[in-house]
Design a protein around this nucleic acid. Structure first.
Length: 426
RNA sequence: GUGGAAUUAGCUCAGUUGGUUAGAGCGCCAGAUUGUGGCUUUGGAGGUCAUGGGUUCGAUUCCCAUAUUCCACCCCA
């Protein structure tokens, strides 16, 4: 038996989990400010949901899915992304009968069978949202405004917003043909990857890092020139709003997004601090996905933030919230006779919302004090024979060692005392 | 799927040009302090030297394979 977590997965332990929770809480609160509600969906779906939703030709479906048969012979897949499952739920639950737009956010763990590198794991986490039923550019811009506010609340700076439009499926197809016409004479010179891209996804040709191919891409036709009038108008609508809010953006004609379902607006937030996987957030509009998966034609828009990458960026910028020391009190017992009163007092304090712990290892008073110190608790409460005889305990401030007697029969007062001093605890 | 580097205590790392009981710092437990943490000091626990083969009188050390970690390609968050 191998006692290691499977490749590409990892354990998250306290106090690190507290940092994650703070980031997730901040996201949920920001979403609530824009009136999004949380959706929770299954960890696995029928495999077709992703085949049709993400697209049969994508890398995700072709080589990255954790697919298995259950005992009933059904083909199931651990979710490699959130959108397809949310759209499946939108259709199945009849959410199109809710008032539009339907605004949903999620915090999910996802699974992709890939080789591990910086900012990429086999199980990873995304903070994301989807908005259904709003056809205009206003929702695209608002979703970006939400992201902008979220990053601001986390204290992040200088995450570059890259913006592009892929147009409709029709003009993208025209453009793909134009690209092929442009590259056809040079087919032999292209790197093997690009020869494959030429067949499968010509848009990716623009993205190649090989020097020669990169040069060639400079002269390639621009997708912008193939946008229909409505897509142009839509795109202008997005940028107009971003400018109104003072949100900086950069038009990046190379961003393409890997998933088949995007149309018109696509965007990324990119950082230089996350290795070569610098995309912290990717999103855009997907007007035909609901229909593709068997629902009505409902336009939609969304994004996903890579939580691991977001945390890396926060660390690089030095804005990671420090893990919080526990608040509350450790009730130390100097005598066996104090164990029962200590247990009673601990529960009385907890009822009053004060975090309290007692010795569970039957250790010496000294060892108990050491324990309380190591946990970083602001207070300990010492119960011994002398104090018990007087109906008291000694409340000790761990920061300065000052002690004061407190009544054992007045937990309300004790709770108030601890609460009033707690905010100062580091 | 491909390529590079790495793997010694819970953590960060020394080390053995192949030789008997493998070390340090931090952390953990306990004592010095018979009712009190942090500083100091003393001691203790904790390692099949990633796993499996091979070479050798002898392998933690050399060789091969595998696993895992880190980084990169593809691609994505």
């Amino acid at each position: 038996m191998s006692l290691t977590a499977p490749k590409g997965t990892r354990d998250l332990l306290p106090p690190q989990t507290g940092v994650w929770r703070q980031v997730e809480t901040c996201f949920a609160e920001t979403c609530a400010l824009f009136q999004y509600g949380e959706i929770r969906i299954p960890t696995f779906e029928y495999t077709e949901v992703f085949q049709h939703g993400v697209g049969d030709t994508t890398d995700i479906v072709q080589k990255e899915m954790y697919t298995f048969q259950d005992k009933g012979g059904r083909s199931l897949t651990l979710r490699p992304e959130g959108t397809a499952g949310v759209v499946r739920s939108f259709i199945e639950q009849g959410l199109s009968s809710r008032p539009y737009p339907v605004k949903l956010f999620y915090i999910l763990n996802l699974f992709r069978y890939e080789n591990v590198q910086k900012g990429r794991y086999r199980e990873f986490h995304q903070l994301g949202l989807e908005a259904f039923g709003a056809p205009g550019p206003e929702i695209d811009a608002e979703v970006i405004a939400l992201l902008s506010l979220f990053f601001e609340r986390l204290g992040l700076r200088n995450i570059c917003l890259h913006l592009n439009s892929l147009g409709t499926a029709a003009c993208r197809q025209q453009y793909n043909e134009a690209l092929r016409r442009y590259y056809q004479p040079h087919l032999e010179e292209l790197c093997p990857d690009c020869q494959r891209r030429f067949e499968q996804n010509p848009l990716r040709l623009l993205d190649c890092k090989v020097a020669h191919d990169h040069e060639l891409a400079q002269g390639a036709p621009l997708l912008f020139d193939y946008l229909d009038a409505e897509s142009r108008e839509h795109f202008d609508g997005v940028t107009r709003l971003l400018e109104r809010w003072g949100i900086p953006y950069e038009i990046d004609k190379r961003i393409v997004r890997g998933l088949d379902y995007y149309s018109r607006t696509v965007f990324e937030f990119v950082s230089e601090n996350v290795g070569t996987q610098g995309t912290i957030c990717g999103g855009g509009r997907y007007d035909s996905l609901v229909e593709t998966l068997g629902g009505q034609a409902v336009p939609a828009c969304g994004f996903a933030i890579g939580e691991e990458r977001l945390l890396m960026e926060m660390e690089a910028q030095g804005v990671l919230p420090s893990p919080q020391s526990p608040a509350g009190v450790f009730i130390a017992t100097a005598e066996q006779a104090a164990v029962l009163p200590a247990a009673g007092l601990a529960q009385a304090l907890r009822r009053r919302g004060i975090s309290a712990a007692v010795d569970l290892c039957r250790r010496s008073l000294k060892a108990q004090m050491k324990y309380a110190n190591r946990l970083g608790l602001p207070f300990s409460l010492v119960l011994g024979a002398d104090e018990l005889a007087r109906g008291e305990a000694a409340l000790r401030s761990m920061a300065d060692g000052q002690e004061q007697p407190v009544r054992l029969d007045d937990p309300d007062r004790l709770a108030a005392l601890i609460n009033s001093a707690a905010p100062g605890a580091k």
